[in-house]
Structures are given as structure tokens and as C-alpha cells.
Simulated scan of single mutants.
Amino acid sequence: MTQPAFHITVHGTPGPQGSKTRNAAGALYESSAKVKPWREAVKHAALDALAYDQEWKPLNEPVCVDVTFTLQRPKSHYGTGRNAGRLKASAPDFPTSKPDLDKLIRSTQDALKDAGVLVDDSVVASLSSGKRFVLTGADALRNPGAVIRVWRLNNPTKEASS
């Protein structure tokens, strides 16, 4: 497989974007307080990576985005007392509760656009994504965050630094 045009690891708690709530005055706001910090974390990690590539221009062509989100396991997955710190046999292998994967993708793609990685998230023609718990499988991190890769689809051999 060719090298991705762009590749970063982001540390922080992934925040979903999409659900809105109305306050008492009727104004809409994001339901998750994690959206803004997550978008900022992605944006800053992307800007740091792009700082080393003076030739970088936001991708304005079909791309494939691959994102693996790493989430913290809930405390309920672990035993108590003398079994504290031990994973219960009933603990699931994959995250199946909130946040929703599509909402995590939404916030992440918007942050990539804000950082200048993509001209717009509409250029994403192919998407691969997943949720993992900390240290459980390929691309799972030691702490919450995400591994993000972007490939050019029209000219995949054209490399860019990241």
C-alpha cells in the first residue's frame, strides 16, 4: 500500500458532533461539551504536522480517510475489591455505546478542514473508521485519541510530508 498523504496521532477524548440541544432561551448548542476540545486537539495536531511541509496545499481531490478512535473503558468493565483493575469476563471487546462513530467522524473531518488538510470534507470519497478501547487492537493508543490517515485516490503515489 502507498504511504498516506497525511498521517497524525491525536491525543485527547474524542468528541461527537451533531446532536444539538436548546437552552431556556431557545438557542441551539452542541450537546457534547467534548466537541470543541476534540476539534481543537485535531486541528492543532494537524497544524503541527503541516508546519514541516512548506509545499502543503489543502487536498482538493478525492481522498480516503481512515480514522481509528481510542476510547477509555468505563469503570464498570473492571472488577472491584481484590479484582480491582482486572477486566471482567463480560466486558465487551469493542465500544458499542456512545459516542456514535458517525458523529466522531463528523467532528474530526471538520477539524481537518479547519486545519487546512482538506479543502472541504466533501472531498472524502472513501472512509474507513473504527472505535477501540485503550490498548485493544490495531491503531489503539495507550490513552484516548485517534490515529488519522488520509490517502489521495486520484494519484496515490504522490507523497506529501506529514
Rank of each mutant, 00 (worst) to 15 (best):
M1A: 14
T2Q: 03
Q3L: 12
Q3N: 12
P4G: 05
I8D: 00
I8G: 00
V10K: 00
V10D: 00
G12P: 08
P14S: 10
K20I: 13
T21L: 14
N23W: 06
Y29D: 07
E30T: 04
S31C: 05
S32V: 03
A33L: 09
K36L: 10
W38H: 06
R39S: 13
E40N: 12
V42Q: 02
V42P: 01
V42E: 01
K43W: 01
H44Q: 15
A45S: 11
A46I: 01
L47C: 03
L50E: 04
L50D: 05
A51M: 07
E55I: 00
E55Q: 09
W56A: 07
W56P: 08
K57F: 08
K57V: 09
E61Q: 15
V63A: 00
V63E: 00
C64M: 14
V65I: 13
D66S: 15
D66Q: 15
D66H: 14
V67H: 03
T68Q: 11
T68P: 05
T70C: 07
Q72T: 13
K75E: 15
K75H: 12
S76A: 15
H77P: 03
Y78H: 09
T80S: 15
R82A: 14
N83W: 11
K88Q: 13
S90M: 12
A91Y: 06
D93I: 05
P95Q: 05
P95V: 02
T96R: 12
K98N: 14
P99K: 07
D100E: 14
L101H: 05
L101P: 03
D102P: 01
L104T: 08
L104Q: 05
I105H: 01
I105Q: 04
R106W: 05
S107M: 04
A111R: 02
A111K: 02
L112W: 04
K113N: 06
D114T: 11
A115C: 06
G116A: 07
G116S: 07
V117E: 00
V117I: 13
V119G: 01
V123G: 04
V124A: 09
V124K: 10
S129W: 01
K131P: 02
K131A: 05
T136G: 02
G137C: 10
A140S: 15
L141C: 04
L141A: 05
N143C: 04
A146N: 06
A146F: 03
R149P: 01
V150T: 07
W151P: 00
R152I: 02
L153C: 08
P156R: 06
E159R: 09
E159N: 08
E159F: 08
A160V: 02
